[in-house]
Amino acid sequence: TTIHVGDLTLKYDNPKKAYEIAKKLAKKYNLTVTIKNGKITVT
């Protein structure tokens, strides 16, 4: 599972963990989490 945050690309083997991290990042920086085709993007 890949999380895209701006220019950063973070890879995680565990999709659930990746989603949790994405949610935390989104909350911290007041951003939105988008999931599309298995890719998690924080914008």
Results as ranks from 00 to 15, higher is better:
1 T>F: 12
1 T>E: 05
1 T>G: 10
1 T>I: 15
1 T>S: 10
1 T>M: 13
1 T>Y: 11
1 T>R: 01
1 T>N: 09
1 T>A: 12
2 T>N: 06
2 T>M: 09
2 T>K: 04
2 T>I: 12
2 T>C: 12
2 T>A: 07
2 T>R: 02
2 T>G: 05
2 T>H: 08
3 I>F: 02
3 I>E: 02
3 I>G: 02
3 I>N: 03
3 I>C: 13
3 I>A: 03
3 I>Q: 02
3 I>V: 13
3 I>P: 04
4 H>N: 08
4 H>S: 10
4 H>A: 07
4 H>E: 10
4 H>Y: 11
4 H>V: 14
4 H>Q: 15
4 H>M: 11
5 V>S: 05
5 V>N: 04
5 V>H: 05
5 V>M: 13
5 V>G: 03
5 V>L: 14
6 G>I: 08
6 G>N: 05
6 G>T: 06
6 G>K: 03
6 G>H: 09
6 G>D: 05
6 G>C: 11
6 G>S: 05
6 G>Y: 09
6 G>L: 12
6 G>F: 13
7 D>Y: 10
7 D>A: 14
7 D>M: 12
7 D>K: 15
7 D>T: 13
7 D>L: 09
7 D>F: 13
7 D>R: 13
7 D>G: 15
7 D>P: 10
8 L>K: 08
8 L>F: 08
8 L>W: 07
8 L>I: 12
8 L>P: 03
8 L>N: 03
8 L>E: 03
9 T>D: 06
9 T>P: 04
9 T>L: 14
9 T>I: 15
9 T>Y: 08
9 T>F: 10
9 T>S: 08
9 T>C: 11
9 T>A: 09
9 T>W: 09
10 L>I: 12
10 L>N: 03
10 L>V: 07
10 L>Y: 07
10 L>D: 03
10 L>R: 01
10 L>H: 03
10 L>C: 15
10 L>S: 04
10 L>F: 11
10 L>E: 04
10 L>A: 03
10 L>M: 06
10 L>G: 03
10 L>K: 02
11 K>H: 15
11 K>S: 13
11 K>V: 15
11 K>R: 13
11 K>Q: 13
11 K>L: 13
11 K>Y: 15
11 K>E: 12
11 K>F: 15
11 K>D: 08
11 K>P: 05
12 Y>L: 08
12 Y>S: 04
12 Y>V: 10
12 Y>N: 03
12 Y>I: 11
12 Y>F: 15
12 Y>C: 10
12 Y>T: 05
12 Y>E: 03
12 Y>H: 03
12 Y>P: 02
13 D>E: 11
13 D>N: 10
13 D>Q: 08
13 D>T: 08
13 D>Y: 08
13 D>A: 10
13 D>H: 06
13 D>M: 08
13 D>V: 06
13 D>L: 09
14 N>S: 13
14 N>H: 06
14 N>E: 05
14 N>Y: 05
14 N>A: 03
15 P>V: 12
15 P>Y: 15
15 P>W: 15
15 P>S: 08
15 P>E: 10
15 P>A: 11
15 P>H: 09
15 P>K: 07
15 P>C: 11
15 P>D: 06
15 P>Q: 09
15 P>G: 06
16 K>M: 11
16 K>W: 14
16 K>H: 12
16 K>D: 12
16 K>N: 09
16 K>L: 13
17 K>Y: 12
17 K>F: 11
17 K>W: 11
17 K>R: 10
17 K>M: 13
17 K>Q: 13
17 K>A: 09
17 K>C: 08
17 K>N: 05
17 K>G: 03
17 K>V: 13
17 K>T: 13
18 A>S: 01
18 A>N: 02
18 A>W: 08
18 A>H: 01
18 A>R: 01
18 A>V: 05
18 A>P: 01
18 A>D: 01
18 A>Y: 03
18 A>K: 01
19 Y>C: 11
19 Y>A: 07
19 Y>Q: 07
19 Y>W: 15
19 Y>E: 07
19 Y>K: 07
20 E>M: 12
20 E>I: 11
20 E>P: 00
20 E>N: 07
20 E>C: 07
20 E>S: 10
20 E>A: 13
20 E>Y: 13
20 E>D: 09
20 E>F: 11
20 E>L: 11
20 E>V: 07
20 E>H: 10
20 E>Q: 12
21 I>H: 08
21 I>A: 14
21 I>N: 04
21 I>T: 07
21 I>M: 14
21 I>Q: 06
21 I>Y: 11
21 I>L: 08
21 I>V: 13
22 A>R: 00
22 A>S: 02
22 A>G: 01
22 A>Y: 05
22 A>V: 08
22 A>E: 00
22 A>C: 09
23 K>I: 14
23 K>E: 12
23 K>S: 08
23 K>N: 11
23 K>G: 04
23 K>P: 00
23 K>F: 13
23 K>V: 14
23 K>L: 15
23 K>T: 12
23 K>M: 15
24 K>F: 15
24 K>L: 14
24 K>Q: 12
24 K>I: 14
24 K>G: 07
24 K>D: 07
24 K>R: 13
24 K>T: 09
24 K>A: 13
24 K>S: 09
24 K>H: 12
24 K>C: 13
24 K>P: 00
24 K>Y: 15
25 L>S: 00
25 L>Q: 01
25 L>Y: 04
25 L>G: 00
25 L>R: 00
25 L>T: 01
25 L>A: 01
25 L>M: 06
26 A>F: 05
26 A>D: 00
26 A>Q: 04
26 A>N: 01
26 A>R: 03
26 A>H: 03
26 A>M: 05
26 A>W: 05
26 A>K: 03
26 A>Y: 02
26 A>L: 06
27 K>V: 09
27 K>N: 08
27 K>Y: 09
27 K>F: 08
27 K>S: 10
27 K>T: 09
27 K>G: 05
27 K>P: 01
27 K>I: 10
27 K>Q: 12
27 K>A: 14
27 K>M: 10
28 K>N: 03
28 K>P: 00
28 K>M: 09
28 K>E: 08
28 K>D: 05
28 K>Y: 10
28 K>T: 05
28 K>C: 09
28 K>V: 05
28 K>R: 10
29 Y>M: 04
29 Y>P: 01
29 Y>K: 03
29 Y>G: 01
29 Y>Q: 02
29 Y>E: 01
29 Y>T: 00
29 Y>N: 02
29 Y>D: 01
29 Y>V: 01
30 N>A: 07
30 N>K: 09
30 N>Y: 05
30 N>W: 05
30 N>L: 05
30 N>C: 07
30 N>H: 12
30 N>P: 01
30 N>I: 02
30 N>T: 03
31 L>S: 03
31 L>T: 04
31 L>E: 01
31 L>C: 11
31 L>H: 02
31 L>M: 14
31 L>W: 08
32 T>H: 11
32 T>V: 14
32 T>A: 10
32 T>E: 07
32 T>I: 14
32 T>G: 04
32 T>C: 10
32 T>S: 11
32 T>W: 04
32 T>M: 09
32 T>D: 04
33 V>P: 00
33 V>Y: 01
33 V>L: 14
33 V>I: 14
33 V>S: 00
33 V>H: 00
33 V>M: 11
34 T>M: 10
34 T>R: 08
34 T>G: 04
34 T>S: 11
34 T>C: 09
34 T>L: 10
34 T>I: 14
34 T>D: 06
34 T>F: 11
34 T>N: 08
35 I>S: 03
35 I>V: 14
35 I>R: 03
35 I>G: 01
35 I>H: 04
35 I>K: 03
36 K>L: 14
36 K>A: 14
36 K>G: 12
36 K>P: 01
36 K>C: 06
36 K>I: 15
36 K>F: 11
36 K>V: 15
36 K>M: 13
36 K>D: 13
36 K>Y: 09
37 N>W: 09
37 N>F: 11
37 N>E: 12
37 N>H: 10
37 N>G: 12
37 N>V: 06
37 N>I: 08
37 N>T: 06
38 G>C: 04
38 G>N: 10
38 G>W: 04
38 G>M: 02
38 G>D: 09
38 G>P: 00
38 G>V: 02
38 G>H: 05
39 K>V: 15
39 K>Q: 15
39 K>S: 14
39 K>M: 15
39 K>Y: 14
39 K>E: 15
39 K>H: 15
39 K>R: 11
39 K>G: 07
40 I>N: 01
40 I>Y: 04
40 I>M: 04
40 I>P: 01
40 I>F: 05
40 I>Q: 02
40 I>E: 02
40 I>D: 01
40 I>C: 06
41 T>D: 05
41 T>G: 01
41 T>M: 14
41 T>E: 10
41 T>Y: 15
41 T>Q: 08
41 T>A: 06
41 T>L: 13
41 T>C: 07
41 T>V: 14
42 V>I: 14
42 V>D: 00
42 V>F: 13
42 V>E: 01
42 V>K: 00
42 V>P: 00
42 V>H: 01
43 T>C: 07
43 T>H: 14
43 T>K: 11
43 T>F: 10
43 T>A: 13
43 T>Q: 11
43 T>Y: 12
43 T>M: 12
